[in-house]
Structures are given as structure tokens and as C-alpha cells.
């Protein structure tokens, strides 16, 4: 792996971790949802810090270059985060439905 890329990945992971911590301290991101992002940032850091591991897995999985494996890892993380978001949205939809029903029923009672 190119040294430039290593440095970039490590810097990028630091920026990501700092942003997440900042969002948590400003109460804009609850711990619950920040954990996954922190895990993703740590994975990116490890990829930059220990490229030998990546080289090993590159040949093991069958990627041509370690760079494409890094791309693949980030893509996989994104897919997981998106799946998590879909689950959260579904849960919220269920709650909104309940809210709409209860509020509408209450409104009907009050107007009587």
C-alpha cells in the first residue's frame, strides 16, 4: 500500500472520530447511534495503521490490489450503516402510526 494512502486513511479516521465526538458532546448524536460510526472509523484507522493485514486479506479474498480491498471495506461499512438506518426508520414508522392513530382518536373525542 502507498504511504500516501496510509497517511490519508489515518488522518481521515481521526477527522471522523473527532467529528463524531464533537457531535456527541453537542448532543446532536446519541451514543446509541454513534457507536457504529466510531467502529467504522476505527476500522478505517486499523486499515491505515496495519497495511500488512490488508495485504494478507487481499490475496486471501482474491482482490487484485489492496486499495480495492480498502474500497470494499468502506463500501461494506456503508451498507451496514444503511441497513441499520432502515431498521431504525421502520421502528420509527411503527411509532408514528401509533401516534397518528391515538392523536386522531383523541381529537375525535374532544370534538364531540
Amino acid at each position: 500500500m502507498q504511504t500516501n494512502l496510509k497517511i490519508f486513511l489515518i488522518l481521515f479516521s481521526f477527522v471522523l472520530i473527532l467529528s463524531i465526538l464533537k457531535l456527541i458532546s453537542k448532543n446532536k448524536l446519541p451514543i446509541k447511534y454513534s457507536l457504529f460510526w466510531l467502529a467504522a472509523a476505527i476500522v478505517i484507522f486499523l486499515v491505515g495503521a496495519f497495511p500488512k493485514v490488508i495485504t494478507f486479506f487481499t490475496s486471501l479474498i482474491g482482490f487484485e490490489t489492496s486499495v480495492s480491498l480498502v474500497t470494499g471495506i468502506i463500501l461494506g461499512l456503508l451498507l451496514l450503516i444503511t441497513l441499520l438506518l432502515t431498521i431504525i426508520i421502520s421502528e420509527q414508522k411503527r411509532k408514528i402510526t401509533l401516534l397518528v392513530q391515538e392523536v386522531s382518536m383523541l381529537k375525535e373525542k374532544i370534538q364531540k
Binding site: T97, V100, Q101, V103, S104, M105, K107, E108
Partner: peptide, 19 residues
């Protein structure tokens, strides 16, 4: 009648009736 404050779709509407 009960007027739902926003559109829920047929399932959510009928379930309101059951409630």
C-alpha cells in the same frame, strides 16, 4: 368518523377502527 391527521394507508386506517 375519525379523521386521521395524516395519511396512514389502508392498514393503519382500518386498525384505527378496530382500536
Amino acid at each position: 368518523h375519525i379523521s386521521l391527521i395524516t395519511n396512514l394507508g389502508i392498514g393503519g386506517a382500518v386498525q384505527t377502527g378496530y382500536k
